[in-house]
Design a protein around this nucleic acid. Sequence first.
DNA 1: GATTCCCGCCACTTA
DNA 2: TAAGTGGCGGGAATC
Length: 359
Amino acid sequence: MSSLVSLVYGESETRPQFYSRKEKSLGVLCSNFLGLYNGDCAGTSTVGLDDAANRLGVERRRMYDVVNILESIGVVARKAKNQYTWKGLEEIPRCLEQLKKDGLKENFNSAGSCSSARVCHRKSVSNENQCGGLLSLNTGGEANHLASLRKNNKSDKSLALLSQNFIKLFLCSNVDMILLDNAAKALPGDADDETTLRTKVRRLYDVANVFSSLNLIEKIRHSESGKPAYRWLGWKGKLKNGFDTASEINEPKKRVFGSDITNYNSKRNKTNSVVGWKSSKETSVRMHNKLVDLEHEYDENELKQHPRHKSTGIDFGPFAPVSVLKARDAAFKNVKQVQDMESLASTYRPQYHNQATKL
DNA sequence: GATTCCCGCCACTTA
DNA sequence: TAAGTGGCGGGAATC
């Protein structure tokens, strides 16, 4: 029992250190990873997976999650076994641009579904996609690490491609707000199978947490259903002192959890409370319609089952941006304070390490 | 009770 | 054959 307590409380702590999911979230890990390689280790061109895991005090498995998602937006590129090339945050806008181009060119979500997203990614596997490292990696001996996945159909479900397709939902349809459930349905895969959907939603939470930590998206709440939705913010960040300052740049705009929305475009509410338009390119119409259909379908069912009072706006959910930002800022500060890598590792390890696995 | 998402099992690939 | 990779879903934290 005492050992169990120490697992939870931390052996070196005099005060109980309660387990907190937020501190171990992929978003926080991502922030720390970026802080490490974009800040303290700026200039480092090669990222060793084991090294990163050690420095950040996490299991290697978690690094795969973060790195795969970051690879999907060009921040890193797989170089060799256990090694990634650090491309940098400045790759993000270029990658987003490319993703948008690809998505539009390949008519992402043609025929009102995302079946073509599968086509899109297959093309990507064939190295037609130029984005970052994920789809055009292939430097040196590492020919195409997705090729192996393709063999066993793994790439169809890879986190990296899910990430890219999630982004394409925003970029290619020009919706700026998507219900997570609907994103899962709209993305490639069996949308009728409950288990498949649930799994996809789990993965989308992973992806969304990382993207949220990058300030590419923000989590909000569908005002009527209370269901989670994500709003596209786009890449606004620029580096300052080696750090992504997107959070700082956007900080004034952030709303406190539960507060009223002031910058919400009322026009969006007119047609649909969740899906809004920025423009209306023909290619985007199909996806828009699909998402709108999903929303209508969802809203009708929801209202039938759970009649609600009319809401005046959007409520932020439990993933309150401010709290996340606080956690992130704290993490960044933490990273900044540590000058040498040795102390960095010891600083971070307790935060992530699952002590239970050390038994 | 529903939502969120960490955790680690395990199948598969690679060296 | 050991090590690397990452899909997957159980189940606990959180709302």
